[in-house]
């Protein structure tokens, strides 16, 4: 489980400062402290620093620009509401990524339900009265074209969309965003051993999804 903001009771200013040994030494930590002291422009600095990365993660997770923008906005809104209680047990970036991943999981779950309903609506009835699904258009990239610049990217995006959300998120965080194991464990809420085994299975799933489209 990703570390959502956990409320552990009110803290005074000294306690807050002492509770952030890591954050107090970097830019994020300073901005968090400034924000707690009432300087709301510090929050905009945090947005500037992390919006791009959060958007890229959301875009790979959700696959659509609008959905990704909405998820990032909602993430920062939640951060704004609960930043006062952020204790700094993990880095600000890890905490923010955890919030974003939770939002993405919820959106994926609801979009799956929408897709299931859409597929039900697309059932076709043949001459015998039997119902069957309408064949979806083939969106697989052309293997030969994949060797060309833009098509290789498209093949990877396609393959990422084919793996499960659990595998997708760890591939995005590790292979695309380059997060370390420790940070991955904090963002995903699991031990490092679990991170490694899940990552191994995720790579295998990605290779299978790339079968035939990866040169």
């Amino acid at each position: 489980m990703a570390p959502e903001a956990v409320y552990r009771g009110p803290m005074d200013r000294t306690e807050r400062a002492q509770s952030m040994p890591v954050g107090a030494r970097d830019d994020d930590g300073r901005d968090v402290l400034r924000f707690r002291e009432g300087n709301e422009s510090a929050f905009e600095s945090l947005v500037f620093r992390h919006e791009r990365q959060l958007y890229q993660i959301a875009l790979r997770m959700l696959g659509g620009r609008e959905d990704a923008m909405e998820a990032v906005q909602e993430t920062f809104l939640r951060i704004f509401r609960s930043l006062k209680d952020f204790r700094g047990d993990a880095a600000f970036r890890t905490w923010a990524v955890g919030i974003l991943l939770n939002l993405c999981r919820s959106r994926i779950a609801s979009s799956r339900e929408r897709m299931r309903r859409r597929e039900m609506a697309l059932l076709k009835v043949d001459a015998e009265g039997e119902m069957s699904a309408v064949d979806p258009p083939d969106q697989r990239p052309d293997p030969e074209a994949a060797t060309l610049g833009g098509e290789l990217r498209r093949a990877l995006e396609y393959a990422l969309g084919q793996v499960s959300p659990e595998h997708r998120e760890i591939l995005i965080l590790r292979e695309i965003q380059g997060m370390e194991y420790e940070e991955l464990g904090q963002a995903l809420g699991c031990a490092q051993g679990t991170v490694k085994s899940r990552l191994c299975r995720a790579r295998q799933a990605l290779r299978e999804a790339l079968e035939g489209v990866w040169p």
Binding site: F48, Q56, R65, M69, L156
Partner: peptide, 16 residues
Amino acid sequence: RAMSEGETPADLHGLI
């Protein structure tokens, strides 16, 4: 890793 270098919508910051 190259995929992480995508563009960010210009209006994202303002919307947030």
